[in-house]
Design a binder for these strands. Structure first.
Length: 269
DNA sequence: AGGATTTGACCAGG
DNA sequence: CCTGGTCAAATCCT
């Protein structure tokens, strides 16, 4: 069942990461050079699909599971601070070891879900702070969906929203909604390998208006409670068939950073 | 008054 | 040791 990550496994994963990295870089260049040529997309798609399959096998074998966001039972309670003994302090790191499940670029913070902001951080690698939101129903329904919102550096009018976990809550005000790429011409979804197995379930999003007390107008704070989405573009998964790699700008930055954990500029220059 | 946001502290992963 | 994700008291807002 459990098996340790052997040195050989690690080497394979690292090597595959390099391959995927190179492939993505190549894809970016090709798309820029041969924009509109369908054969480029098809060939690149095949390549990424193969890589994806390898990762699927590796991840399956190595149990590279993502998104286990189980809430400590004792935390489900009132809103007031719980006093933890120094040795049992909960207020610390919850660093998620898994990859983001979905990254969305959006002109608005509205996504049809109700979010409550629980933190904001200055991020070393970015000029803009990152805001942290959890589902409003985290405590009453145990919904573990969270999202991180950050303004794009290159396009400050755009928010980069990373969704982690999935909504398990049932908000009567929220009809079931699906990420739709059909009616939204600038939509692209970024879904990563670690969550690939539940990508389809996570493909939920906005559409319906939702009564919000405060819109996302605030500049720095990225306030919560956003409403029916528009202006979305959901970046495609590296492992998904329809790969639409962002070719430049913040999306490319984001893409590379998310997939490979580093900035691609150095490689493309 | 109650719920949401702000913000500094905490702390584990890398 | 640095970074980033989370907690929760203080504060703000409705």
């Amino acid at each position: 069942m459990d098996r340790k990550l052997l040195a050989g496994d690690r080497a394979v994963v690292e090597e595959m990461s390099r391959i995927r990295k190179s492939a993505m870089q190549l894809g970016v260049l090709l798309r820029e050079a041969l924009a509109g040529d369908p054969t480029v997309g098809a060939a690149f798609e095949e390549l990424t699909n193969s890589i994806s399959r390898v990762f699927a096998v590796l991840e399956g074998g190595l149990r590279l599971d993502a998104g286990v966001l189980s809430p400590p039972p004792h935390q489900i309670s009132t809103k007031k601070r719980k006093i933890y003994p120094a040795t049992d302090r909960q207020g610390g790191c919850r660093r998620r070891s898994h990859l983001p499940s979905k990254i969305v670029g959006s002109k608005t913070l509205n996504d049809g879900q109700t979010w409550r902001k629980y933190g904001q951080k200055e991020i070393q690698s970015s000029k803009n702070p990152r805001s942290y939101f959890r589902c409003t129903h985290k405590f009453d329904q145990g919904c573990m969906a969270v999202r991180q919102v950050q303004r794009s550096e290159e396009d400050p009018s755009t928010y980069l929203i990373t969704y982690l976990g999935e909504h398990t809550c049932r908000d009567p005000a929220m009809a079931p909604q699906l990420f739709s790429t059909s009616d939204d011409n600038n939509t692209c979804l970024l879904s990563f390998g670690a969550s690939r197995h539940r990508a389809e379930k996570e493909a939920r999003v906005p559409a319906s208006p939702f009564p919000s007390r405060k819109q996302e107008s605030d500049e720095e704070g990225l306030s919560n409670l956003t409403t029916g989405g528009d202006d979305y573009f959901v970046i495609p998964a590296a492992e998904e068939p329809a790969v639409m790699t962002p070719t430049s700008g913040f999306l490319a930055d984001l893409y590379f950073e998310a997939v490979f954990g580093f900035d691609h500029h150095g490689f493309l220059s």
